[in-house]
């Protein structure tokens, strides 16, 4: 069964239709890359699925749970909405780390805030915080940042910042992790370390959706590729086929422009 089902998603800003009915599915443990020129709607798609924008129409189902349905009359409280949102994690293009917290606190902040709602929080505060920190340290170790846990974001390189932000998103154990052009804000020589981390996550069968410009990487790491053009999915399929053997003129044009 698909872990992510997006059906007929639409979004307009004023009179501009940015998403004109997007539908796709993603199987658990698979990696999907969304490619397309700027203005094609790929970032809006990602922002709608992450609730940073509210879609005008359509339906989003994650792991059998409907997290958005424009037809539904069921009104969710803000709290319930946030809970549903947490099934999805997001890594931003420009990291958006919290500058006043060190690396460890960036990763633990949301977990610690959430822990306060646990009924046993007052009784077991110390133990709960210790567990959260253990978990964060393990994630940071995996990201190769064990020696940076006490550093502040301003003391890190772009690649390190992005790895912290991946750890921060992973800490909430999302079912699907989204990346919004994770290497676009990095110097070319730093993109490698992020791509390596994503590749490792893919090997562990983390379900991921990556909006990216890195064609070679997309081809290598993704199971599926969706090519967006002017608010619709113009072409989709297995990574090899879509990039290696494009069918539509638009995609051919896009790929040749990218490789120049």
């Amino acid at each position: 069964m698909a872990i992510l089902e997006v059906t007929n998603l639409t979004k307009s800003f004023g009179k501009t239709k940015v998403l004109k009915g997007i539908s796709f599915q993603l199987e658990k443990g698979n990696v999907l890359s969304v490619i397309g020129s700027s203005g094609s709607g790929k970032t809006t798609l990602l922002r709608c699925i992450n609730f940073l924008e509210t879609a005008d129409g359509g339906k989003i189902v994650v792991d059998g749970d409907t997290i958005f349905d424009s037809e539904s009359d069921v009104k969710l409280s803000k709290k319930q909405q946030l809970e549903k949102q947490l099934k999805i994690g997001l890594v931003f293009q420009d990291f958006n780390l919290f500058p006043q917290y060190n690396v460890l606190d960036n990763v633990t902040l949301a977990l610690k805030i959430r822990a306060k709602e646990r009924p046993d929080f007052k009784k077991n505060k110390k133990q709960i915080y210790a567990e959260i920190e253990q978990k964060a340290l393990a994630l940071l170790k995996k990201m190769g940042l064990s020696d940076k846990v006490k550093n502040y974001p301003c003391e890190l390189s772009g690649g390190q910042k992005q790895r912290v932000s991946i750890a921060r998103a992973m800490a909430l154990e999302p079912k699907i992790l989204f990346f919004d052009e994770p290497t676009s804000a990095l110097d070319p020589e730093l993109t490698g370390e992020i791509l390596k981390v994503i590749r490792e996550l893919a090997e562990e069968h983390m379900t991921m959706v990556i909006v990216t410009h890195e064609m070679t990487f997309a081809r290598e790491v993704s199971d599926y590729i969706v090519f967006m053009d002017d608010g619709i999915i113009a072409e989709e399929g297995k990574a090899e086929e879509v990039i290696g053997n494009p069918k539509t003129e638009r995609l051919k044009a896009f790929l040749s422009k990218i490789s120049d």
């Binding site: 946030l82 420009d94 958006n96 902040l109």
Partner: peptide, 11 residues
């Protein structure tokens, strides 16, 4: 982005 990061982390 600071608000958005907080939001996607469930705050």
């Amino acid at each position: 982005g600071q608000y958005e990061a907080g939001q996607v982390l469930g705050m």
